[in-house]
Design a protein around this nucleic acid. Structure first.
Lengths: 130, 130
DNA sequence: TTAATATGACACCAAATGGTATTATAAAGG
DNA sequence: CCTTTATAATACCATTTGGTGTCATATTAA
């Protein structure tokens, strides 16, 4: 009965990281530009330590890379792992007669619609953080 | 400081459900055909109760629908929510100069490569559960 | 009717999760 | 040198998570 080792795979790292709304928000933030931990945490209503943990998980999932610079630690979005997670959907639908593709909804609402937990705060009066 | 209600959104339900490898395996299973709880749990090394919980979470995330039939409960894959999660990636890359699309890797390994936690067992000698 | 089967509903448990606060260290700036 | 700033590391906490086992209930089959 093949059970294998627990959630240590590449895909799992990415999916796990994507499971939290705060982390998805962070990814959206980093799309605009690289940011230090401080810069990221400034935009959320939770502590810097909590943000650091999220960044660690994102790094473990290879969704971001970290680049020390002096006393700062610059976090950079890494598209590869994200693309890999995206591939899961493709693979899924590929062997499932395209019902998924057919149903791809026009993206009318972004992550904010989700309205989950912590959202960036600082970005000027922008309630729709994309 | 907009904090909003916690992980109750549509997208969050899907992403949360997708975060667990066993649940992703279940989705792959249901791609072939609808299954009762019993049928699903027969294919995993964990208890029926545990599988039932996973199915509940998948249902909450609207990734599957449930159809009572007599004393059975048939679980059916629902593509809509999956497509919505997939859209997240599209939306993400749309405003990020296509770096994601460019990096889309050919799907050379499926979920099994992930090797995470519980894998289906019954399906004849098939180690690659797709 | 009686036995088997499929599920639902709990209570319980250990570990992981998402937070916090505190303390320590390293790098910049005056 | 001294102070500030950015981060790291740790301990602690409540809740969630992914499991288990047990028992009750509703169908189905004999």
């Amino acid at each position: 009965m093949i059970v294998a080792e627990p959630g240590t795979g590449r895909l799992q790292g990415a999916f796990r990281a994507l499971g939290d709304p705060t982390r998805r928000s962070i990814l959206l933030l980093l799309r605009d530009r690289d940011m230090t931990i401080q810069e990221v945490s400034d935009r959320f209503p939770i502590t810097r330590a909590a943000i650091k943990k999220h960044l660690d998980i994102l790094e473990t999932g290879k969704l971001i890379s970290v680049h020390p610079s002096g006393r700062e630690r610059v976090n950079r979005l890494e598209p590869a792992a994200l693309a890999q997670a995206n591939d899961w959907f493709d693979h899924f639908s590929r062997f499932w007669d395209g019902r998924l593709q057919a149903l791809k909804t026009r993206v009318e609402q972004d992550e904010t619609e989700d309205g989950t937990s912590a959202e960036p705060a600082k970005p000027e009066g922008n309630t729709s953080n994309d």
